[in-house]
């Protein structure tokens, strides 16, 4: 009796083992930033279908969202991400600088600087545009309150800041001092500094604070279409920044987990026609110009500049503007003395 029971147990366990090995269910973790929630929910389903048709394996993609900087920090501190899809290259590069999780050439491994979709920064105003806000110049007027999150903690806010800076630098013919004064004036009009993009959206949309909200284009569309239909309008500034949110495989993690093949396919498929269209539907600008044409109506024409051209890349922009003792710090100090 005893022996047969033991055999039964062993047999049962063995069956379990074999069963779990044959039904290859692969799990991926994609660590992303705040406003991509809706897009990746649909993309994950599309990729799962694509992969099971191709290889017959089931892929289940888990998502994690949060502020871009804090998401990068979680991965550095050991969160088992197979891929990261963050708001800016600086946060992805931190994975290399802080923890050596990815190689130096990570951004050249995929097309378009590893950014399958891009976005830009626009202005969101209340219905009817009561303060008549047309361009960045209106944001430094004394009677205008501006909502933007804190560039120290929010990736999106750094794009906001750099977009305004790039505009002013162009306006003042490259005069750094005048540009600095312009941005300082803009931040004097900011009553609240939320730590992330979603928090700032809530402050503007739900709390009713501020006259204009500097936002990701896709967040602005989301606010107009879903959060408060008919209550907001998008104002497209004359000049803005080309925001390239990059993606990469986390090499150290996928090699350890043995998920490199599927993780690379997951990112590669972002460039497929299907995924590009999905990105467009979620208000991201597709990087494929052919698909981009299909959405030409929804994306207004803006003169876009690149961070590399105006600021010499993320690392330099970060050092000059956002690190401790940088330009943003001295702007805050100046405002506090008023």
């Amino acid at each position: 009796m005893k022996i047969s029971l033991r055999h039964t147990l062993i047999g049962g366990l063995a069956t379990l083992f074999v069963a779990s090995a044959s039904a290859a269910e692969i799990e991926l973790l994609n660590v992303s930033y705040d406003p991509t929630r809706e897009f990746y929910r649909e993309y994950n389903a599309a990729f799962s279908k694509h992969w099971s048709e191709l290889k017959g394996d089931e892929v289940r993609v888990r998502q994690s969202h949060g502020g871009s900087g804090s998401q990068a920090r979680s991965v550095i501190d050991g969160l088992d991400a197979d891929v990261v899809t963050l708001a800016l290259a600086y946060d992805v590069d931190a994975l290399r600088q802080q923890a050596d999780l990815i190689p130096e050439n990570w951004q050249s491994r995929l097309p378009d600087n590893s950014s399958p979709y891009t976005s830009t920064i626009v202005l969101l105003v209340r219905k009817g545009n009561p303060k008549n806000i047309r361009d960045w110049d209106d944001l430094v007027r004394d009677d205008v309150e501006v909502i933007t999150p804190n560039p120290k903690t929010s990736g999106g806010a750094r794009w906001n800041y750099l977009a305004a800076w790039g505009y002013a630098l162009n306006k003042f013919d490259g005069d750094e001092d005048k540009t600095y004064q312009f941005i300082s004036k803009l931040f004097q009009n900011v009553p609240v500094l939320d730590s992330g993009a979603r928090g700032a959206t809530n402050t503007f949309v739900q709390r009713g604070l501020g006259d204009v909200f500097i936002a990701w284009e896709n967040e602005a569309f989301l606010s107009v279409e879903q959060l408060g239909k008919g209550e907001f309008e998008i104002v497209v500034p004359s000049v803005s920044i080309l925001a390239e949110p990059p993606v990469t495989v986390v090499d150290k993690n996928v090699d350890r987990k043995g998920t490199r093949e599927v993780a690379e396919a997951y990112l590669g498929y972002l460039y497929s026609d299907e995924a590009q269209r999905l990105a467009g539907q979620h208000y991201y600008r597709p990087s494929n110009p052919e698909i981009g044409k299909e959405f030409a109506d929804s994306f207004p024409d803006v003169e876009l500049f690149r961070i590399d051209d105006v600021f010499g890349g993320w690392q330099k922009a970060q050092d000059t503007h956002f690190n401790d003792g940088g330009k943003f710090d001295s702007i805050l100090e100046e405002i506090s003395r008023r």
Partner: peptide, 25 residues
């Protein structure tokens, strides 16, 4: 409202430092 110098509490500043990878600060 988290305005530096005015309504920013110390714990928030600690979080902000950590998010800039300034663990020592």
């Amino acid at each position: 409202g988290n305005m530096p110098y005015r309504t920013e509490i110390t714990p928030l500043l600690i979080v902000a430092k950590a998010e800039q990878f300034d663990y020592h600060g």
